[in-house]
Write a protein that binds this DNA or RNA. Structure first.
Lengths: 146, 146
DNA sequence: CCGGATCCTTCATGATACTG
DNA sequence: CAGTATCATGAAGGATCCGG
């Protein structure tokens, strides 16, 4: 029905104000390491080796079967792709549809929330790309000082 | 019954376009696992156990000495905090100023890029918070189906 | 006070073999 | 085709001791 679009928060001026608010929230949430921390949780989910690639592949192609996805990603083992997909499914980022056929067929696609996650990730990616030269420079500088 | 607010489709087309562009970029970058991948790199940097908390603590307090930072975070070991700070420093997210005194004093603070990283993280955190109920619901549902 | 060096534990990843 | 089961391994995290 509705493709999740990004709300108009990305204003440079109001961002400073909102940053303060957000900071309080995340600080409280991040501090309680023993409790449920959504931020750490989401970061952890996308930080493993294959989740991002899986999400991006599904985001690009819409719907993929297991082996299509495997081929698309390339060097992922069967086991790790299964694990990755289960985790993403568990959190509701992808949906899994099983067809009772012979041979079996299973189709994966992003849920609406999964698309939201992808967009968040793309924003971060966008930022990361812009910082890339500076990061590389910083690393080289750091190396030379040691 | 508070579903996370999904904005209406205001400018779905331009957003979709932008997303498509970004996707191509990140896909190419993410695919070359052997090469340098800024996205994976940044995600990896903030996904370890203490980086986020360190960044947030410094973002909140501006400048902190080592033990202040350690106390602020709470349950981090001396070693891991050192490692974390070195990594963040290496990439240029924090700066480290050493005072040649006895006893030694070292002050840490976010660089400009570090503040940018924090803001990116806060945006992700904001999104994660909104999705939290849905994620929890999905997990419970998943558990019950097994 | 800050942090390097060492050793140890735990967990994610992966190679391989097997199954409905 | 799409998994599950088992075993091996390497990296991350952590405890502890040492040093400037």
């Amino acid at each position: 029905m509705n493709t999740p679009s990004i709300p108009e928060v990305t204003n440079a001026e109001s961002e400073a104000d909102k940053t303060g608010e957000k900071m309080k929230i995340i600080l409280n949430l991040a501090r309680d390491l023993n409790q449920f921390c959504p931020v750490r949780d989401v970061v952890h989910r996308i930080s493993d080796k294959w989740s991002l690639l899986s999400i991006l592949a599904l985001g690009t192609h819409g719907t993929l079967r297991f082996n299509q996805l495997k081929k698309e990603i390339g060097d992922v083992s069967q086991r790790m792709l299964t694990v990755t997909l289960r985790n993403l499914e568990e959190d509701g980022f992808i949906s899994r549809k099983i067809y009772a056929e012979v041979p079996p067929r299973v189709e994966y696609k992003l849920t609406e929330m999964g698309q939201g996650l992808m967009e968040q990730t793309l924003q971060l990616a966008d930022w990361a790309n812009k910082q890339l030269p500076q990061i590389i420079a910083s690393r080289n500088k750091f190396r030379n000082l040691r």
